[in-house]
Amino acid sequence: MRSVVMLAVVMVTVAGIGPLFAPYDPTAINIPNRLSPPSSEFPLGTDALGRDILSRILHGARWSLGLAFVVSLISLVIGTAIGLLAALGGGLTDWVTMRTTDSFLAFPELVAAIVIAGLTGGGTWSLIFALAVTGWMRYARVARGIGLSLKTRGYVIQAQLAGMSGLAIARWHYLPSLLPSLTVVWTGMFARAILGISALGFLGFGVQPPNPEWGSMLLDARVHIRSTPLQMIWPGLAVVISVLAINLAGDALRDALAEERDGP
């Protein structure tokens, strides 16, 4: 649990105060300085429009990490609600809901996100929509599984008999049991969202210029692979480090929870 809290703190810090350390305006165009190599003036060099790459990477954290955070939380809420609906509704509700989930899973998520983002016009909102709509299914499955096992627990039946409202039962009896597993799923989906956002940016369907987003920076840098190859190293490195950190935290959390369940 501590690792995930630490991770959240680090990520929020990077995305939150990273831009404060940016030496330049990430969108300031400076043609005379275009494609300059790393120097004391521009630590990571400049891009084709002479914008400082370090500043763009630091500001990009807000887009790449921040959007991924938002997207993974939205799909967490959608997925949990759908999974619990299936578990508690039972019968036909369960069947329809889970077949819908299967339908959504019967398609590579990123390809679906590309289609949706592309067709809804590109840009930040359609990016959020596309990734949230294609990212809720794992949460739904986990929430349904746990919901089914909780539904017949003694204390849930007692709460029902006591006449507690559905919302109160969800809050006090379901949420505490759901939270650990959902957090593990969430770390995986957070990482996937970062990859998804930069992939869509790289294809031109994501965050639109001049906003600095790591994937779209790679798209810009790709053209100059022969002249200034270093330019494409930085945004990629930023993606890899973020995803790696999140995956490692997720693994640690999963192991910690497994240990807690099975005893030390």
Partner: peptide, 26 residues
Amino acid sequence: RPALVMQEPRAAFNPALSLRRSVMEP
């Protein structure tokens, strides 16, 4: 509003909450 006393006493209570909270639920 009938009440039920269960066979497994511990399973009838949410392990994360104090007994008092559960008792007050009805």
